[in-house]
Amino acid sequence: MTHAEPLDSLRRRTSEKWTEHPSDVLPMFVAEMDYPLARAIAEALHAAVERSDTGYVNPRDTGAAEAFAGFARDAWGWSPDPALFGITTDVSVVIVETLRRLSAPGDGVIITPPVYPPFFDLIPEAGARVVEVPLLDDGSTYALDLAGIDRALAAGARGVLLCNPHNPLGLVHTRGELEELARIVERHGAFVVSDEIHAPLVHPGVEFTPYLTVSDAAREHAIAAESGSKAFNLAGLKAAFIVPASERMADVVRGLPDEVTFRTGLFGLMATRAGFADSREWLADTLAAITANVDLLERLLASELPLARLRRPSASYLAWIDLSAYGWGDDPAQHILEHARVALSNGPTFGREGVGHVRLNLACSPELLTEAITRIAALTRP
C-alpha cells in the first residue's frame, strides 16, 4: 500500500495545495495527492533532466498514447487507436477546444451538477451556454437524469459535457445509463464530450465504462478527454489526450490548431508513458491506500460527526460530504477553514446542489485525515 509523505516533507512542496494557506491549515481541498511519485515516473523525469531533454514535444511520438491504450485495453477492455489521438496540456483544454468545434456560439451544452466547478466556466470560454440538468438524487444514490437531458436537447441544447466518473461524487455511471444517454444524444443529433480523467482511479471491484465503448452511435458523436494527471499526480506537467473513435471525430481532432498540440509538456508525456506503462503496481497500491482511507472516513464520521452524510465514492480520492445538519451555512468549508483550520473545497462552487456540502481530499495519510475530522468535530462541541 502506498504511504503519504511526512507532513514536514509535504510542506516543502510549492504547488497550490501547500502554498495557498498558512502552515497551521491542513490542506485537503485541491485534487493533488500527498503520495510520492511512482518510481518509474521519477526515474523517467530524472533521466530527462540528466540528458537536458527539455525541448518541444514531437506530436508524431505516440509512446504515451500507446501506453494509455494498453492500459485501457487491460483495465477496461477498450482498445482506442493511438494513431487518432490528439495531445494537449490538460483535460480542460480538451473540453474547450473540442466544444469550440462541436458547438456554435450560444449553443446550449448540458452539465450535471453538482459537478466539477470549472465546467461552469469552460463552456462559456468556448462560446457556448451552460444548461444545467442536475443529477437525480433519491437520498441514497445519484444518477444521470436521462429524461431531463432528453428534454434539454429537445429544447435546443446541442451537446452534453459528461463527467465520467463524476467529480465530486466519485460516481461511476453504469453501462446501461451510458447506452441510453448515447441513444438520446443520437436521436437529437447532438454530441458528447466525456471527461474521463478520474477513470484510472475507479476503486477495486467497480466496473468503469468508457463512453466511446457503449455503441457505434457514441463513437460517431463523442470525444473523450483522457489523462494520467489525476491517477499519477502529474497535473503540473501538462499532458492530456483528445480521443476520437470514428473518422468524423478524428477529423475534429485533426482540425485543431497546431498550438493546441505544441503547448503540451514534454515532461508530461514522458511521465504519462511511464505511468500507464510501468506504474500499474504503484497505482494499485495507491488505490488500496485511498479505499482504506474511505473506510477510515466512514468510521470517523460515524463516531465524530454523526450528522454528516457521506455516500461512499466508487472512484477517485474525493469525498462529497453533506454537513448541512450542523448549521454552518450554505458554505460550511468557509466556516471550517476559519474555525478549524482545515481547507476543504467549497460545496456551492459545484452548483446550487452543493449548498451545505464540502469536498474532502482523501489522498493523504490516515493520521492527517484523522486530525482533520477531529478538528472539524471539535466545532460541534460547546
Rank of each mutant, 00 (worst) to 15 (best):
S279G: 08
W320P: 07
S23V: 09
A340Y: 11
L234I: 01
M28G: 02
V131C: 07
T112E: 15
V130F: 00
L37K: 02
T174C: 10
R13P: 07
P36F: 11
V253A: 04
I110G: 05
F262K: 07
D121Q: 11
G228P: 06
D81R: 12
I149K: 13
A152M: 07
L146W: 04
V133P: 09
A157M: 01
E179F: 11
N233V: 09
T89M: 08
L266Y: 10
A47Q: 10
V30F: 06
L307S: 13
G347V: 05
A302K: 11
Q334F: 08
G329M: 15
F208T: 01
T261E: 15
G127I: 02
G127S: 04
A284Q: 11
A235C: 03
T14M: 13
L84I: 15
V130D: 00
D90K: 08
L102Y: 10
D8F: 14
S246V: 12
R359M: 14
P105N: 09
A155W: 02
M270Q: 04
E20D: 11
V115E: 05
T209L: 11
R12N: 08
L297W: 07
V160E: 03
D195G: 01
G275E: 04
I123M: 07
M270F: 09
G156C: 06
L300P: 00
A218F: 05
L99R: 00
H188G: 04
S9N: 09
E304I: 13
E50L: 14
A288P: 05
